[in-house]
Design a binder for these strands. Structure first.
Lengths: 208, 208, 208, 208
DNA sequence: CATGAATGAGTTTTCATTCAT
DNA sequence: TATGAATGAAAACTCATTCAT
């Protein structure tokens, strides 16, 4: 009895948490992390205000959690590309395309990441979490980079550029009504173009 | 007589305003637009709290002004590239490089733009101002885009990508200690790479 | 179960609200609506500053509420006079006396009304509310006015004079230490006098 | 030379002061004493903000001065009534009519007096000044009161009622669009009525 | 646990007053 | 003396967080 009712409880609890996260992401994406008040989230999720704090230590922790979730989701889509070996350019193009598509479908995610992982909003945890995402990307890119003559100790920068481009495109595009309706084909072309550019390693040796 | 004393007055006033803007940009870049209080800015600028509001109608107006200033500054460096005719790839590469260098030297500017031109922080004016910057870039890119077979009505997206990449690179890079020390040569290479990629127009025609 | 606990909750809340209103009326009456800070009211009521705004949307709304309450209270004492039919003079005298007695016992109410229903303090709502009170008085006075040959379309002015006299007497009297100790008998005499004067309709027809 | 230029100076100064007072009365009457900012007054008067404080020690002192001026103006019109001896009722009626007419023509004055002489606005000086005005009225009324059997030590209350009625009528009437267009004849009738009432002293002894 | 009322630190903004020119 | 820029003490209001029920 306690078993089943306990299970019920946990089910309800998990459901509430999911709704909180869903609605929170949506609202924060639209109104901004700061402008979005805890109460709005709980109202949208259909729970009491106090409940929020039984699930998350603070608003900041909530944001960090959201960031983690988004980046985890994204990683799940990127990782497979690293399994099937492919040439450097294709890999870059694929990773770029995945990122672009991901954020085109989830502009709120782009908004959240931008606000949370910068200097003001998600605390240090969010930035660290982004760092780990870049590590993943860098790791995937490392072999390709080597073949392209890209300095190994700078692969993170390669990853960063790929990431920043995708997120920034939709973050800045949102308020300008740009990006949301960019045809997938064009988006892919952008991704491939970026890849081809980055992959075309016959640059004159950059004397630092 | 009135000249000299009046001049003094206006000089002092103009100086105070410049310091307010300087310190404000610096602080907002470091701590974030929201976390940066008006009083901190006035203290850093060495003026009283009330003085801030004799120069700017509100904090939001202050931010908008800052955005305008930064983008004006940036435009002044980009525009010349449009005067000397060059091939599409070089133009793209140049514009990318200018943006990257600009924001590498001014990470606070990248931070400000990111926070102010998104959904939360600078009001609608800031986003509009960014729109005008993209118009400038799009106008410069239009001829090149035509030669590359890039759809004319999508040139703003090209501009957006170029811009978002540069700003995002340093916005996300900042807290991760990435980007600040990327050698200029590598930065140029990134710019050129992006350009070459975007310029290499032999993509299969993107069927929307 | 929910009943008892919920009842407690609401009881506490209602109690706090009542104390807020009571203390607010008292303080605003003594120090003036503007000079009286929200925090003073909450302190006097023994609640936190923020609590004030969970009960009232703004200080202005609070004042409007107070005005409504005071005028409602007053109306409850005036209305019965309209039920028992009486001659015009007695009606006027009675209404005047009720008003005078009411505000003598509640100088804070006179102070509040004066400040809130004028051009500065209670917003437009307060003035409107006063308008409705005058409507009530005018409605009660209408039959009497007719008998006195007082133009029907000017009955509101009759009501206004009655009201203004009573409120003004204690508003201006307060700081001058006048009115507070005026014996009831004298007050009644004033009321009756005013009534007799206004009722004595044998004025020569006033050719405007 | 100093003489003539000094005269000029003083002329200008006196002119500025008069304009300040005029515009101040007008503005405060319309917007309320608190809502009316010093800068608005100086702008309306066409002088610099700082100039205000070379003429008046503070905003409060300015209001007190205004009150003094208004009441002085009013007294100048009331006093003559005391010179020509007349019966009690006529005296009361005359004084009432003068007050009513005065404030009908100057609703700003009614507004100013109401706000300044109460508990919040004009400081203690304004209330004292009103006290002196009532003294004048009381002095004029004293003989009449005696004839009417009105207690001599309560004559001030008689004066207060007369005054409060006139001011209050236009203060409360203003926002309600009442009083401003009341025909003079009706106003006089109100005054006379009030007088007749107050004068008719054969009240049955009021058993408190 | 869930709830929502209570809380008060913190923030922007206003405005009378001062003072250098 | 006239001016208006500078000043900072307030004051209303917000909102994340706590806690009694």
């Amino acid at each position: 009895m306690t078993d089943s009712s306990g299970g019920r409880h946990e089910k309800r609890r998990a459901l509430a948490e999911r709704r909180l996260l869903e609605e929170g992401l949506k609202l924060m994406g639209v109104k901004g992390v700061h402008a979005c008040k805890v109460q709005e989230i709980t109202q949208a999720a259909g729970v009491g205000k106090g409940t929020f704090f039984t699930h998350f230590d603070s608003k900041e922790a909530f944001v960090a959690r959201l960031v983690d979730q988004v980046l985890g989701d994204l990683a799940r889509r990127v990782r497979p590309l690293g399994l099937a070996p492919s040439d450097a350019e294709s890999l870059l193009a694929g990773m770029g395309a995945v990122h672009l598509r991901f954020f085109q479908l989830r502009p709120e995610a782009a908004a959240l990441i931008t606000q949370a992982c910068g200097r003001d909003g998600g605390g240090p945890q969010a930035a660290e979490r982004l760092g780990r995402h870049l590590d993943l990307l860098a790791q995937m890119l490392a072999p390709a980079a080597e073949r392209l003559g890209w300095p190994q100790e700078r692969v993170r920068e390669l990853a960063l550029m790929l990431f920043a481009t995708s997120v920034g495109f939709f973050w800045f595009g949102g308020p300008l009504q740009l990006g949301g309706d960019t045809p997938l084909a064009l988006l892919d072309r952008l991704g491939r173009a970026m890849a081809r550019g980055l992959a075309g390693g016959e640059d004159p040796p950059a004397a630092s």
